[in-house]
Design a protein around this nucleic acid. Sequence first.
DNA 1: GCTGAACCGGAGGGTGCCTCCGCTCGACCG
DNA 2: CGGTCGAGCGGAGGCACCCTCCGGTTCAGC
Lengths: 191, 191
Amino acid sequence: MASTERPMRADARKNRDLLVAVARQHVRRQGITTSLEAIARDAGVGPGTLYRHFPDRESLLAEVLRIENDELAAARDRVAREVDVADRLDAWLSEVERHIATYRGLSGPLVGALEDAEPTPLGSVCAEMLVATEQFLADARRAGVARADVTAHDLLGCAAMLAWLGSTCPAGSRQADGARDILRRGYRADR
Amino acid sequence: MASTERPMRADARKNRDLLVAVARQHVRRQGITTSLEAIARDAGVGPGTLYRHFPDRESLLAEVLRIENDELAAARDRVAREVDVADRLDAWLSEVERHIATYRGLSGPLVGALEDAEPTPLGSVCAEMLVATEQFLADARRAGVARADVTAHDLLGCAAMLAWLGSTCPAGSRQADGARDILRRGYRADR
DNA sequence: GCTGAACCGGAGGGTGCCTCCGCTCGACCG
DNA sequence: CGGTCGAGCGGAGGCACCCTCCGGTTCAGC
């Protein structure tokens, strides 16, 4: 289907890429509620152009994340390779938390996408994280370091909560650390 | 100090009370990001009037909560009286979570107030919850059902996280239940 | 080069935030 | 009870943002 579509016009492609690049900067700095108009301005295009390429905030966001997701995949492989199985799940969840927390305000929409039945732009990003988490959870269970009644879905929810708490508190606060410790003891089988 | 100030003019008092009442409805229905202009409109006053009584969103919110806080205090007394010490802390934290979750979006500002050094309008609301939580935590420790390294501050953070997760998911989702179980096992000493 | 379809960008209507200022009306005094 | 004056009112207005629509422009294939 997609293969039968003719390729994008060169100027359209350029604008689209530029918009995603500028959006990435803005979202990193201002969080996901950053002004779309400002992104268009900075990219030197009109608002109409932005809205044609990305009909709503979420599709633009999904595109930004799609690019960034390579980083998370790399982290996943690194964790699987280098971290001892006893701490692998912890390490992975930390990565997920850090990834989510990169963009202030992302945790909300992400949890929404985790729940939503119909596929949203953010859905695929979520699905990937869920698969990896299931993998790590299975490993941990086999090694006897994760409780049996905890699900990957729950764990992602926990990571999102922590990311939320961390980016809600004033920067530099250790508020999330206590909660993280409590959560760890709650899903691990060995403490 | 406050006692030397002359009492409010009757019309001002009336407007102020009306605004708080209308705001309460709106915030309950729409969450804390509800439109302040709409509140003013519904109360039949101009925006200027609203902003003189409540210079920013947070002071209006704090006033709404101050009224509602009686409910939480009642819950606190009921829990202290009726619930067995083994489950008292759990019961109290559930109440806190429910209370916070009543107003969609409240968890963020509340956590902020929990951290802030200088007193914000929401600060006193927080302080009250913190005191009660410390009390219940101390009881639980004495009864041997709470881990020693958990702080009341951490627990409030956890309640806020759960409230956040609960009101972020589409209504009726059980997403928060898993996280709540994990957290409970994390702070309790007996499971 | 020509042509038409794809694409552009900005004007504009709607909403919300917050401020400022001229007028009103309630409180108190004589 | 009537007058005064200042607290209080409310709406106009400036600003930012969201999103849509459409007349003009530019690319791509012939």
